[in-house]
Design a protein around this nucleic acid. Structure first.
Ligand SMILES: [Mn+2]
Ligand SMILES: [Mn+2]
Ligand SMILES: [Mn+2]
Ligand SMILES: [Mn+2]
Lengths: 218, 218
DNA sequence: TAAGTATTTTAGACATGTCTAAAATTATTA
DNA sequence: TAATAATTTTAGACATGTCTAAAATACTTA
C-alpha cells in the first residue's frame, strides 16, 4: 500500500507535530530521521502530491487527515508489536524498539486485528506510550514530566520520553518501571536535579532523568 | 544484513534446487518469481559476486553453502511465523502464506530464537512442511504423494505440495487436514483419479488433488 | 534596511532493482 | 549439419530514494 520510506516519513512528521506547533520544518525531519534536508524536500514534495500532507515551500509540512491516519496506524502497529515482544516473547523493554521498527511495516489489517485481540487490546506499550485505536485515535492522557513536580508531590511513573537503551537500563538499576510510585523529596532550582523516594530507596537524579520520565500526579 | 530482493532470490533458488537436479535455470527462477529472465540474470550475477551462488553463463545457478544457509534461515522464519499465525492468532492455514512472506524478512536472531521457544520448537509448519533448524538443516521425511499409493493402501496426510488458498479450502470441505487418515479405495490408470475413504466418507478425487497431497504410508 | 547567517530547495549524480528490445548462445529438428 | 527455435544475456531506460554542491530564500543583527 505505502512504501517503507513513506511510512517512516509520515511517522516522523506525526511525532514532530506533537512536539511543537505549526508546520514541521525540513531540518527537523532530517534530523529526526538521520538523513539530509535535501532528501527530505524530495520526499515531502512527493507526499504532498499524494495528499498525505500540505507542503509550503520554505515553510514546512503539515499532515492531512489521510497522512495522520497512515502515521497513526504505523504507530499502532509499532506499539502493539512492542507489547507482543515484551509480554509474550519476554524481551526486556529496552530491546524491543528496533525490532518493532521493522514489524510496524508488515501490511495486513487482519493481522493487527488478531494481534490486538491476542494481546488483550492493550492501551499502552511497554514504555507507557498510548496505542492508537484502529481509527487512528490517540487517547490523550494527563501526564507530566517528573521535572514539573514540586517538593513533596507524588506521582506514578506512566512512561518515558526518550526510550533509548541506556536510559531504560538506568531506570531498571534504580528499580523504576511503569507503575512505580515516586515521591519528590528535594529539588534544586539551579540545575533541576532532584532527590526522590522510590520504594524505600531515596536517591539523587539529574535534570536529564527528571525530564525524561512521565508521571501522573497522585 | 541482506536485502529483501537477495533473500527472495536465494529462497526461490533453494526451493528449485529441491525440485530438480543440477543447476537452476534463469527461466525457472524468473517463472517462480514472476519476474523477467533479464532481471534474474542481473541479480544472479550480483549474488555470484557475493559468493552466495556459483553462476555459469548460459548454464544456470547453484547455491553455495553460504547461500544455502541464508535461504534456509529465511524459510525457517517463514514457517515459524506461519505456525505463530495459525496456533496463536488462530488464522486459517490458507490465510497465512502472504503475511509470512513479509515476516520472513524481519532481521533479528534473538527474535527467532524466542519465537521458536514460544511456539514450543515446532518441527513442521501448518502445511506439513519441515522447519529448518537454526543451522539451516532440514529434516528429510519419508513422504510420498497420495497419487503414488495403490488400491487399498492407507496413509496419513502429512502435508500439501501446492498450498494455494483454493486447494486448501477444497481440503477443508472434504475434511482433510494434517493428520487425517486416507484409504485408497480405487484408482483409475487412464486419468489418475481416485476414490478415497476419509473418516466415514468415500468420494472421488482428481489426479490433480492426488498429486498435491503428501502422505506417510501406514 | 542591508549584510551576513541559517535554512531550504534545486540540479545532477549514484545505487538498487526492474523492464523492453536486441544480440548472443544453446538446443532442436529436419 | 544447417536452419530454426528456445533460452539467456546485454544494452539502455526507468522508478525510488539517497547524496553533495550550489543556488535561492528567509532570518538575524548591526
Ligand atoms: Mn519503540
Ligand atoms: Mn514504545
Ligand atoms: Mn508459506
Ligand atoms: Mn507453509
Amino acid at each position: 500500500m505505502y512504501t517503507l520510506a513513506e511510512e517512516n516519513y509520515l511517522k516522523a512528521i506525526f511525532h514532530l507535530e506533537h512536539e511543537t506547533t505549526g508546520e514541521v520544518s525540513t531540518n527537523a525531519i532530517a534530523e529526526s530521521m538521520e538523513t539530509k534536508p535535501s532528501s527530505v524536500t524530495d520526499m515531502v514534495q512527493k507526499l504532498a502530491e499524494k495528499k498525505m500532507l500540505v507542503y509550503k515551500r520554505y515553510k514546512g509540512a503539515q499532515l492531512t487527515e489521510k497522512g495522520r491516519k497512515i502515521a497513526a496506524s504505523v504507530i499502532r502497529k509499532h506499539r502493539l508489536w512492542e507489547v507482543f515482544l515484551v509480554e509474550k516473547l519476554k524481551f526486556h523493554w529496552d530491546e524491543v524498539h528496533d525490532i518493532a521498527e521493522q514489524l510496524e511495516h508488515i501490511q495486513s489489517d487482519e493481522l493487527i486485528t488478531r494481534l490486538d485481540k491476542f494481546l488483550g487490546s492493550p492501551d499502552f506499550d511497554p514504555h507507557g506510550d498510548p496505542i492508537p485505536d484502529k481509527h487512528g485515535v490517540l487517547k490523550r492522557t494527563e501526564k507530566k514530566l517528573l521535572s514539573e513536580l514540586e517538593k513533596n508531590q507524588k506521582g506514578v511513573c506512566v512512561g518515558v520520553k526518550e526510550s533509548n537503551s541506556d536510559f531504560l537500563q538506568y531506570l531498571d538499576k534504580k528499580k523504576i518501571s511503569i507503575g512505580t510510585k515516586i515521591t519528590v523529596r528535594g529539588k534544586e532550582f539551579f540545575d533541576g536535579s532532584m532527590v526522590i523516594l522510590v520504594g524505600k530507596d531515596q536517591f539523587f537524579i539529574s535534570k536529564m532523568v527528571a525530564e525524561n520520565l512521565f508521571v501522573q500526579t497522585l
